[in-house]
Simulated scan of single mutants.
Amino acid sequence: MTTRYAALLRGINVGGHRKVPMPELRELLTELGHGDVATYLQSGNAVFNSASDDEKALTTALERAIHRRFGFAVDCVVRSGPYLRAVADDCPFPADRLEARQLHVTYFSEPVGPERLASIHAEAYLPEEFRLGDRVLYLYAPNGLGRSKLAEALGRPSLFKDIVATTRNWNTVVKLVELTRD
């Protein structure tokens, strides 16, 4: 039996740096023994089937293979299709009534407790808001991520220095759910 996964690569193909061409990423995932490999956009989203049920092992193998192939480290988060569906279903904001540019999900490599974000005074950023979920943070930014002061505060390296965090807009969240359906 196989499971459908998404691999979320952090910080590639931005501004001409850390280039990972999607055809080469698909080839790499296939070489790792995964099936039905596909990519979405150029920003580091891949889906694949695997007989493994160990997301951490899949992540480590992919990160090592990327480093060997491209010569630089790329942080990754690998999550199963059912997990991605649960993240979308559990969204605390009215996703069906918002523009995709207003809603983002940050996927974490490990659980994040509220104590980690205690220094963020959420009321100072209203109407922007965030909520924690299962290894994710949901961000509502009515004027988009690029203008979000809350996103800037949440992006401080000291908040998540020991875990991988990678953000996707709502359109990508929904598309990854679609691409990982069994």
Score class of each variant (00 low, 15 high):
M1K: 15
T2D: 10
T2L: 07
T3D: 04
L8M: 15
L9T: 11
L9M: 04
L9F: 04
I12M: 00
N13Q: 11
V14N: 11
V14I: 15
R18E: 02
P21G: 07
P23W: 01
L28I: 04
E31L: 01
G35A: 13
D36L: 01
A38P: 01
L41Y: 02
L41C: 03
Q42D: 13
F48R: 02
S50H: 11
S50D: 04
A51T: 15
T60Q: 11
A65K: 04
R68C: 02
F70R: 05
C76Y: 00
V77I: 15
R79A: 10
G81H: 03
A88N: 05
D89I: 04
F93P: 00
A95W: 02
E99P: 01
E99S: 09
A100R: 08
A100N: 12
Q102N: 08
V105K: 07
Y107K: 09
Y107I: 07
F108N: 12
S109F: 00
V112T: 13
S119G: 11
H121K: 14
A122P: 04
P127N: 10
R131P: 12
G133D: 05
Y138W: 05
Y140M: 13
P142K: 11
R147M: 13
A151W: 12
A153D: 07
S158P: 08
F160W: 07
D162N: 13
V164K: 09
T166H: 06
R168E: 13
R168A: 13
N171M: 13
N171V: 10
V173I: 14
V174C: 14
V177A: 08
E178M: 09
R181W: 03
